[in-house]
């Protein structure tokens, strides 16, 4: 009873602290974004300024420059390898995850503090609600991969909602890279389970043994390309879904923020600012839900694709 009461009290203060943090960020977000748009010099379209990648970090119109390298030429194509804001925030988020999770990896006892409870909740959520229902037999083998995937996407989505920071999941290259990683894990786990020939045999919808040979041949020739195309469209859809959700959410927040903004010449219509900030706070809260939901959906769909590749046996 005593322990229960302590844990309840701890949970209360932890949740309160979290709420306070969120409220603080919410108050910061509209103010900072509006002033960034107002003070900015190099771009005209505030929407594009927020949604694209740059080689500077923008803090209220004050630009911190990032190093620019010479493009590398491979086969006559120039590859730009200079450091951008998305790159910086991707690594900041990833190092945060590495530090926090490696700290809690050492402490096996359940932590009573806020951070430990958050980490425990997320890890148990990934294990019990995503991976174990979908891959009941060998979830232990794949759990590290899904935890990494979930944590990275979750972190990037929430970094995108913090003022001055640019979460890298609004960049199509990042989501495409995540989807390609999932794709390679799907294919390699399928090949590991069945061998190359056995895995290719899974693309045939009808087996030759159970059916009439001619019917099976015709159906397989007609339908195997579609099955093969399904494998290729899955990572594409995965990357576009995450990217478009995040970009659309940010675009809606900015649209509500910029209702009163009439361009550089006209300036602000100050009567509209209060309702537009209120509406954008509402959308911001919705985006907090979407940030979590998209990490969940990405991980869940990856798990389902892997289970299809593994358990698809005739």
């Amino acid at each position: 009873m005593y322990i229960l009461s302590i844990s309840k009290a701890g949970r209360k203060t932890g949740a309160l602290r979290f709420l306070k943090l969120i409220l603080l960020l919410l108050m910061l977000y509209p103010v900072t974004d509006i002033s960034a748009v107002e003070n900015h010099n190099s771009e005209n379209d505030p929407m594009m300024l927020h949604l694209t990648d740059h080689n500077f970090i923008d803090i209220m119109g004050f630009e911190i420059p990032l190093p620019v390298f010479k493009p590398v030429t491979i086969n006559g194509r120039d590859l730009n390898i200079s450091i951008t804001s998305d790159f910086v925030f991707f690594w900041i988020g990833t190092f945060l995850i590495i530090i926090v999770l490696s700290f809690y990896k050492k402490n096996q006892i359940v932590q009573k503090k806020f951070m430990g409870r958050l980490v425990e909740t997320l890890v148990l959520f990934v294990r019990d609600d995503i991976v174990r229902p979908v891959l009941p037999h060998d979830y232990k083998k794949y759990l590290p991969f899904f935890l990494t995937l979930f944590m990275v996407i979750f972190m990037q989505n929430f970094i995108g909602l913090i003022p001055f920071m640019s979460g890298s999941t609004k960049n199509l290259s990042v989501t495409a890279a995540l989807a390609v990683i999932t794709f390679s894990v799907v294919i390699s786990s399928g090949i590991k389970k069945f061998g190359i020939l056995g895995y290719l045999k899974n693309f045939l919808p009808l087996s030759f043994k159970e059916n009439n040979f001619v019917i099976a041949l015709v159906f397989n020739i007609l339908l195997a390309p579609f099955e093969f195309m399904g494998i290729l469209t899955k990572p594409f859809a995965l990357s576009i879904r995450l990217f478009a959700n995040i970009v659309a959410g940010h675009a809606v927040i900015l649209t509500f923020l910029l209702i009163g903004w009439g361009g550089k010449e006209l300036g602000w219509n100050y009567f509209v600012i209060a309702p537009s900030v209120a509406a954008s706070v509402f959308i911001y809260l919705l985006e907090c839900l979407v940030a979590f939901l998209q990490a969940y959906v990405f991980t869940l769909l990856s798990a389902i694709f892997i289970s299809e590749a593994i358990e698809h046996s005739h």
Partner: peptide, 15 residues
């Protein structure tokens, strides 16, 4: 949530 995400994905393609 899975079905809603699939529908939403198509919607986002078109958006």
């Amino acid at each position: 949530i899975l079905g809603a995400a699939l529908v939403e994905g198509v919607a986002f393609f078109c958006a």
